[in-house]
Amino acid sequence: MAKRALIVILLTIAPMISGCSAEAAALLVSYHSGPAVNEITIKYLKGATDSPGRLEILEETSAKVAVKVVIRGDPGGDIEPMIGDVREVVGTLTGPLGDRRIVDEMGIDIPPG
């Protein structure tokens, strides 16, 4: 019985401990090429308690580049656009950006800016 009670307690508090910081995709605002020839800069929105973003290049073809910015933050906290911070993260491409489309993980175009 005591062993079962311990398991129930651990199963109850484990999500609270591990859930303090969850990874999520950030809202992508815009992009521009650079600073170097084979680099891209992505602007994204992050909440006050979120970690700095990590850029993932999901797919790179001759026609498009699919990207995702991963942030770690409070799983219960929503980003309010009026108080969110716009930040930048830089990633390296296999070649110059050129005129390729930049899309998010769902294939939605990210505007230049």
Score class of each variant (00 low, 15 high):
Thr61Met: 09
Gly95Leu: 05
Arg101Glu: 07
Ala26Met: 06
Asp74Gly: 10
Glu105Tyr: 12
Arg72Phe: 13
Met106Leu: 14
Ile57Ala: 06
Ser18Ile: 13
Gly98Thr: 00
Arg4Met: 07
Ser62Asn: 14
Lys3His: 14
Ile110Ser: 02
Ala26Trp: 00
Asp104Val: 06
Leu6Lys: 02
Ile71Val: 15
Ala14His: 04
Asp78Trp: 09
Val90Lys: 04
Ile108Met: 00
Ala22Phe: 12
Pro35Tyr: 04
Val90Tyr: 03
Lys3Ala: 14
Gly34Asn: 01
Tyr44Cys: 07
Pro75Asp: 03
Tyr44Lys: 07
Ser51Lys: 04
Leu93Pro: 04
Val37Leu: 12
Leu6Tyr: 00
Thr61Tyr: 09
Lys43Ala: 09
Gly91Arg: 04
Gly73Asn: 10
Glu56Pro: 01
Ala14Val: 15
Arg54Pro: 00
Arg100Gln: 02
Lys64Trp: 08
Ser21Tyr: 13
Arg100Glu: 03
Thr94Ala: 11
Pro81Asp: 11
Asp85Asn: 08
Ala2Ser: 15
Ala66Asp: 09
Ser62Phe: 03
Tyr31Gln: 04
Val89Phe: 01
Pro15Phe: 13
Ile7Gln: 12
Asp78Lys: 15
Gly73Val: 11
Ala63Val: 07
Pro96Val: 00
Asp109Asn: 13
Val37Ile: 10
Arg100His: 05
Leu93Arg: 01
Arg87Thr: 12
Ile9Lys: 08
Ser18Glu: 13
Ser30Cys: 14
Glu59Phe: 07
Val86Ala: 12
Lys3Leu: 14
Ser33Lys: 01
Ser62Arg: 13
Ala14Glu: 00
Arg4Asn: 11
Asp99Glu: 13
Ile13Val: 15
Gly77Pro: 02
Ile13Gly: 03
Pro52Cys: 01
Glu39Leu: 03
Lys46Leu: 03
Pro15Gln: 11
Thr92Val: 13
Ala5Asn: 15
Leu58Cys: 01
Leu6Thr: 07
Lys3Gly: 12
Gly107Trp: 05
Arg4Thr: 09
Ile110Tyr: 01
Pro35Gly: 02
Ile110Met: 02
Gly73Asp: 08
Leu10Gln: 10
Asp104Leu: 03
Pro81Trp: 05
Gly84Ala: 15
Leu55Gln: 00
Ser30Val: 05
Gly77Tyr: 02
Ala5Thr: 13
Ala63His: 14
Thr61Ser: 15
Ala48Met: 09
Gly47Cys: 14
Val90Ile: 15
Pro35Cys: 03
Glu56Asn: 05
Glu88Thr: 09
Pro112Met: 12
Val90Ser: 06
Ala25Met: 08
Val65Pro: 06
Leu93Tyr: 01
Leu11Trp: 10
Gly53Lys: 03
Val29Cys: 04
Lys64Cys: 02
Val37Gln: 11
Ala24Trp: 12
Gly53Val: 05
Pro111Asn: 08
Gly84Arg: 06
Met1Ile: 10
Ile83Met: 13
